[in-house]
């Protein structure tokens, strides 16, 4: 079959640093992956095309690129699965990381974030005479998250990182989860404290992009949500994030549905006068257009709200 790839080319150090799209058409067997086709292009058509790859078997994590706008491992993406009706497969470098050349990005952004969460065991207490023992049960929870191959696909497509490069991002936070949950690690309190701060767990948008693009089922966002639970359970309550969850739950438990106006006020803090004043223009615009719902005590309860409250009581403390 004929494969047509439209590849984003870029050489930031050249005379023409901005990127452009270059189309290549090669004859390939049907079983070819995007990586197979890219290698064929490099070997037979254009030796100047820069790509990074190693194992070609979805183990090393070297060949993540964006295919038709979505981060994937080029080596386990079959061409036939991603060729649209018009026949052109668009291949671009990963996002949120600077391009070195063509499809190769500078992974230092990725690694610096991983380093920032101290990705190693920090046991406490005296060293055991033999090895540290962790039960099978305790490690089962970690099998998926330990499957991370550090390809950077989640970082590439993270929508929060796109607007804030300080955000720790999905890969590093999933790695942090891996250590907070390890029974041999003794640094949970310090870890959670630092993850509770700006650029940590509360800056995730819950967009699920990382869950969708991860080629190994690590589900980074689910780990971030679990970390939010951990910081809340650890009593770290002085954040907007915590107050937002608490106010949301309180509203649904009380009335069966959401009191949007009180949710905002309680999340910012009832006595956070500067913030409340800053929010006034938005509130007034909404009020003028009949879009500011009446807050408690005027917020009407849903019929059967007492059953909702009962479910809350019954499940209190259960995950």
């Amino acid at each position: 079959m004929q494969a047509t790839l439209s590849v984003r080319r870029q050489d930031p150090e050249s005379q023409q640093p901005s990127s452009w799209m270059q189309e290549y058409t090669v004859e390939v067997p049907e079983h070819y992956t995007v990586l197979d086709a890219l290698i064929k292009v490099r070997e037979e058509v254009d030796p100047s095309l820069a790509i990074r790859c190693s194992c070609r078997a979805a183990i090393c994590g070297s060949c993540a690129v964006r295919v038709n706008g979505r981060a994937r491992l080029a080596c386990n993406t079959k061409l036939t699965n991603v060729t649209p009706e018009h026949g052109v497969v668009v291949v671009e470098p990963m996002g949120n990381q600077p391009v070195v050349k063509d499809l190769v990005v500078d992974l230092s952004v990725f690694w610096n974030k991983i380093r920032a969460v101290a990705p190693y065991l920090q046991p406490e207490g005296p060293e055991p005479e033999e090895e540290y023992i962790a039960s099978n049960e305790s490690m089962l929870l970690l099998t998926e998250v330990m499957g991370c191959i550090m390809c950077g696909a989640c970082v590439s497509d993270c929508t929060a990182l796109e607007v804030d490069s300080n955000f720790l991002g999905p890969a590093a936070l999933a790695k942090a989860f891996r250590f907070t949950e390890d029974p041999r690690d003794g640094a949970d309190a310090d870890r959670l404290q630092s993850l509770n701060e700006y650029s940590g767990v509360w800056d995730c948008t819950r967009c699920m992009m990382c869950v969708e693009v991860c080629p190994k089922g690590v589900a980074p966002m689910d780990r971030i949500m679990a970390l939010r639970e951990r910081v809340m359970d650890a009593g770290m309550t002085n954040t907007v994030g915590y107050r937002h969850v608490a106010a949301f739950a309180e509203s649904v438990e009380h009335a069966g549905w959401l009191d949007e106006t009180m949710l905002a006020v309680k999340s910012w803090g009832m006595f956070n006068v500067p913030k409340l004043i800053a929010a006034l223009p938005v509130g007034l615009r909404a009020l003028k257009r009949g879009k500011l719902p009446m807050p408690a005590p005027f917020h009407k309860k849903r019929p059967g709200h007492e059953n909702v409250a009962r479910i809350f009581k019954r499940l209190e403390g259960q995950k």
Binding site: A160, V163, D164, Y198, V240, G241, L263, A264, S267, W268
Partner: peptide, 8 residues
């Protein structure tokens, strides 16, 4: 994240 990080 509107209430948590309005800038972003």
């Amino acid at each position: 994240i509107l209430m948590i990080n309005e800038r972003n």
